[in-house]
Nucleic acid binder design. Structure first.
Length: 272
DNA sequence: CATGCGGCCTGGCAGC
DNA sequence: TGCTGCCAGGCCGCAT
């Protein structure tokens, strides 16, 4: 589910709801998601105040008092929702953070590919975050950077783009979308792409992500914001999930092939 | 080192 | 209706 726009949507959604609240406790029903055992996690968080919420790559960072940060990854199927009132929990409601002021943050993740980590000190130095590439919406993500990094490499440009060491936050949906917008066929070896085309790709990656954030993310099946609302970018997808349909730009037929084990969508009319 | 693939999990859906 | 197989937004570790 969640690529950068979805995580950003959650981040913006929960920030005004939980900043300033203090943590009364944490309920962990599925310990496999957490690196720390429940008792340790609970002890580490109890009594701390939420100072800020931010996003790095596809991780959500909940910054707490005492130099302690909760890192939450939503995996493929995770959602994070805030409830003002206690509600009975459902299947796959694995973790819940309860606040002294009332309200609770609930982490649901049917496929359990998500993770909850705890960082002391600088969260960006945490092993989960330390080796990641630049943020696509930052100044570090430039044509030169992508061009230089891709030289002498043979991986498909789509896999290159989805590699979180290249650039973070771009997953299967937005990689297909950005490559379509840039007119680049997804299987092209990344080392054979010109600087000029990378310039366009950088621009289109940024554009598609910003556009998706504005729409509140893409809801294919179960993504929802912290308030439980779906994202509206699905209706604006140009290629993802549209195999056999007409390209909205050129009328060609959208193709679906597998690259690096992932479904990849493109239009042979617009992309080369 | 770079690349490609299987595995981790469950649910939903198409096809029989 | 019910079963089977396949697919799914991510990422890690292993074999080549």
């Amino acid at each position: 589910m969640p690529e950068l726009p979805e995580v950003e949507t959650i981040c913006r959604g929960i920030t005004p709801l939980i900043v300033g609240l203090s943590i009364a406790g944490i309920i962990i029903r599925e310990p496999r998601l957490c690196v720390l055992i429940p008792a340790d996690l609970s002890a580490s968080l109890h009594g701390r105040t939420v100072l800020a919420v931010s996003r790095r790559a596809k991780y959500l960072l909940i910054h707490c008092s005492g130099d302690c940060t909760l890192l939450i990854h939503l995996g493929m199927s995770g959602t994070l929702r805030f409830f003002a009132e206690p509600l009975s929990c459902e299947r796959h409601d694995h973790v819940e953070i309860i606040f002294d002021q009332g309200g609770r943050l609930r982490f649901r993740d049917p496929r359990r590919f998500g993770a909850i980590l705890l960082s002391h000190g600088d969260p960006l130095a945490h092993p989960a975050l330390a080796g990641l590439g630049p943020e696509p919406l930052s100044d570090e993500f430039t044509t030169d950077y992508l061009y230089r990094r891709s030289r002498q490499r043979t991986v498909a440009v789509k896999s290159f783009l989805m590699d979180q060491k290249t650039v973070v936050g771009v997953g299967n949906i937005y990689a297909s979308e950005a490559l379509h917008a840039a007119g680049i066929v997804p299987w092209r070896p990344c080392g054979t792409i010109s600087r000029r085309r990378y310039a366009l790709l950088v621009k289109e990656v940024r554009a598609v992500l910003l556009h998706a954030i504005e729409a509140g993310g893409t809801t294919l099946r179960d993504f929802q914001s912290a308030a439980g609302k779906p994202g509206y970018f699905a209706q604006e997808l140009m290629v993802y999930g549209r195999a056999g349909d007409q390209c909205r730009k050129c009328g060609g037929e959208i193709q679906n092939i597998r690259i690096g084990g992932r479904s990849s969508f493109y239009c042979s009319g617009c992309q080369s």
